[in-house]
Write a protein that binds this DNA or RNA. Structure first.
Lengths: 334, 334
DNA sequence: CTGTTAGCGCATTCAC
DNA sequence: GTGAATGCGCTAACAG
């Protein structure tokens, strides 16, 4: 079945396509009688103008891009939730793309979003200085960085005050009783560096024995690392506290430690960071720092929408407040 | 910064735009020297043709639509993961739309996907006979139904053998010891009806006391319903088994019951259905039926891609095998 | 091998 | 108020 075009409508209604176009964009410029006549034809065929043609003809497009590293990551799900809540209320379509941690794909994806004339772009970039962000700056497409801050005065971002989050966690862990502290920074992502800085600035460094550096992102990574930790450090004899800078990884760690019969929080206290949805429901509810990820998404989306629709130009630079959430995984260890 | 167009490239390279176009589509039709010359210019400006214009000019578009009820639902995320794994390997972009359980939005969304000339559409429809599916059939756009089966011989679908899943669960619950069985169908979605049919056909109906009918989709719904159940049925005195036809809801139920100090599985055994990611990690790991949701997504996506790229025309009708997964939430109750 | 021409579906001047 | 032309960026015949 061929698509109905504006010409079909015009012909059927016995008018020119300009008039049909007007009915759709500025109805009051058309005489009431003709307008209603045209509208009835439009309705009859449930005609909808082609966004493609409209875009080519210069109209701003009604879709916004959302670029992340990993589509199925719980962190991004919460982000998506906030974003979706904003855009599904408007008539913007979401075009998502996951780079799968591949910087080349990240750039290509963003380039394609720009080329496709997305009205705006939300991106959780691999780093504030990555190629994708450069591209965005040159493109003049409105965009907001997610989960990432930058000093660039022109660039908008919505992130969490990770430094403060690290401090909150340090203060909590400082009250716990343990013989060794193991820290898993999990990545060199800016957000992680921030929370680590906040953490280390506010914890008694004497207590701080080993720091492991590792590149872990997933539940599986955590599971694997926990095995290594258990083999390397004496978790059975020494009361241990683990600070894992990412909930998803932390849950993997917990799962493995439980399998190894190490009581949590009795023998090993574990804390995470992010407060993803699972953290409250998981095996041992996880002490963590909430980033209000859903809020992050919502705020960023609203700001972007404002910029697109009302041509607001001042960049937004927003840090959501982190909140320490103490759950079972570190309880009873004061 | 204005977009680079094919004309700019042509001008700079001193050729006509047709030649540039050819270099991009069928390079071997162009003399090697000119081709390389043009390619270098293209590279210099990192020119990428506008998908909009290409689409309008009749080229098949490189994006596929993915329509679901709720974008941030764990079930759909797993689906999306499988889908993404296929399309991110090709250069197709995913355009998602969440109807937020609103049938009007579902139709509008699909209509807009069709109008926008998506190369193909994946949809987890509210029902196999909903307006969105009708639209799709008329549109001639290749599409695959997800999490939904239909007798229509022309329509492709990938779902789970929910009836069998229900049977598997019935067989498991049949081995448990309990005084009352509470069933939460949670919705009248086809998949749920199927699994309920499979369940009821294979369980001893004498044991089957109350059946609750309820329209629950979320964790919060489960949480709320559990409160009601605890007030209505005597969970404290009667050993109870609850079959909740949806993991997400089941986890909400468990959470609330635990808060009410009802031991699980000791006093109340709970089983779910779906095996979403959380189910293995949650407070009380959940006995459930795995639908291999990620596989569903992958298989559907691959089939759709085959249809788009190789014009394969035979519809796919695929049911992934359900697997019973026994976890702690029903253990030790034989 | 390469350039010219004519749409694709629409919005937007500009005339009438 | 309305219609006829023009262009958005590109591809696909059609000529040369």
């Amino acid at each position: 079945m061929k698509h109905i075009t504006i010409d079909d409508i015009a012909k059927e209604a016995g008018v020119s396509k300009s008039t049909v176009s007007r009915v759709l964009s500025r109805p009051n410029l058309v005489k009431e009688r003709t307008r209603e006549q045209i509208l009835s034809v439009i309705d009859k065929y449930s005609y909808v103008p082609s966004a493609l043609a409209q875009g080519l003809a210069g109209l701003p497009m009604k879709n916004i891009g959302f670029a992340v590293d990993e589509f199925s990551n719980n962190f991004y799900i919460d982000l998506a939730d906030g974003i979706d809540s904003v855009f599904s209320a408007s008539d913007y379509a979401l075009q998502v793309m996951s780079s799968r941690w591949n910087p080349v794909r990240e750039i290509q994806g963003v380039r394609s979003m720009i080329i496709n004339r997305n009205a705006g772009i939300l991106i959780a970039p691999s780093s504030p200085g990555c190629g994708a962000v450069d591209l965005l700056k040159k493109s003049k497409v409105p965009f907001v960085l997610l989960n990432c801050r930058t000093d660039d005065p022109d660039v908008s971002y919505v992130s969490c005050d990770n430094y403060k989050g690290g401090r909150l966690m340090a203060e909590h862990i400082g009250t716990l009783d343990f013989e060794q502290l193991i820290i898993l920074p999990v990545s060199d992502h800016q957000t992680v560096l921030d929370r680590m800085a906040g953490f280390e600035d506010h914890i008694d460094m004497k207590a701080l024995r080993p720091i492991m550096s590792s590149n872990a992102k997933t539940y599986q990574d955590g599971y694997r690392i926990a095995q290594f930790i258990a083999e390397t450090y004496d978790l059975v004899r020494k009361k241990t506290c683990l600070f894992v800078a990412n909930d998803y990884v932390a849950i993997g760690v917990i799962t493995k430690l439980l399998e190894l019969k190490i009581p949590i929080p009795g023998q090993a206290a574990v804390a995470g960071f992010d407060d993803i949805r699972i953290s409250a429901m998981c095996r041992i509810p996880l002490t963590t720092v909430s980033q209000s990820v859903c809020d992050m998404g919502r705020i960023a989306a609203q700001s972007l929408l404002g910029r697109i629709q009302h041509h607001k130009t001042e960049p937004i630079k927003y840090l959501v407040e982190p909140r320490l959430i103490i759950r079972e995984s570190t309880k009873g260890r004061t």
